[in-house]
Amino acid sequence: MNKFGERLKNGIITENPTFVQILGMCPTLAVTTSAINGLGMGLSTTVILIMSNLMIAMLRKVIPNRIRIPAYIVIIASFVTIVDFLLQAYLPELSESLGGYIKLIVVNCIILGRAEAYASKNPVAASAFDGLGMGLGFTIGLTAIGMVRELIGAGTFFGMTIPGYQPIGIFVLSPGAFLVMAFLIAFLNSRRRKSGKAAVSDTICRTEDCMHCSNTSCGGRFYDFDGETDMVGRLAEKQKQEKDTKSGQSQDGEVKQHE
């Protein structure tokens, strides 16, 4: 039981996808025009995360390692299609206002990232709770950003008008999304600096190539390839150097022992 609680806390606080990992930027910027939209998008993502984590954890010993990414994508896309049709049938207004972004949950890096990082290696129940935690963390992030944008840009709070406030319309339009995110990341960076952690844009590559990487927030650290070296080559080079220094040290140790 404790383990499940830990998964929830990990998703909502320790590794919050919006405020700590800054993942899933496209939906974060696109649908946070109001708190309700953020909440709807967050909950849809949560359902898909739980179901796909559940399914992938169940099939983790069946799916061959080499074709795991396409297999995960098919599983995720199936659940996305189901959720899309459910929303169209039962919540047509929300479905209308979220538009095509529900279908694009397929390429949301949080979901593939959790499949790769957690569900493919852990038992079913823990994976489901991991999905629930991450999904709730994402929902809280989207709802909070949506609330701020709605409050400043439309002068409403979950649709209720705030009397005597002149809204700044640009915050619910597309530039507002960029501006709010800029200030949010700047705030997170200054907090991280105080606690001695690396800035958001300095988070490290999580996999060997960008194609399977769940981290879209690297802001060009390894994308920054000039001329011949690509990010994969550069990362491989770095890992090789680390290996060399490690093996060099161990050899030194052996030499000393012999002496």
Binding site: L173, A186, N189, V200, S201, S217
Partner: peptide, 21 residues
């Protein structure tokens, strides 16, 4: 300092979005 890296890029993108409006 807090705006170095990603935030300043986002601000730039925001201003570009205003221009594209």
């Amino acid at each position: 300092v807090p705006f170095q890296g990603m935030p300043i890029v986002m601000l730039t993108a925001g201003l570009m979005a205003i221009a594209f409006m």
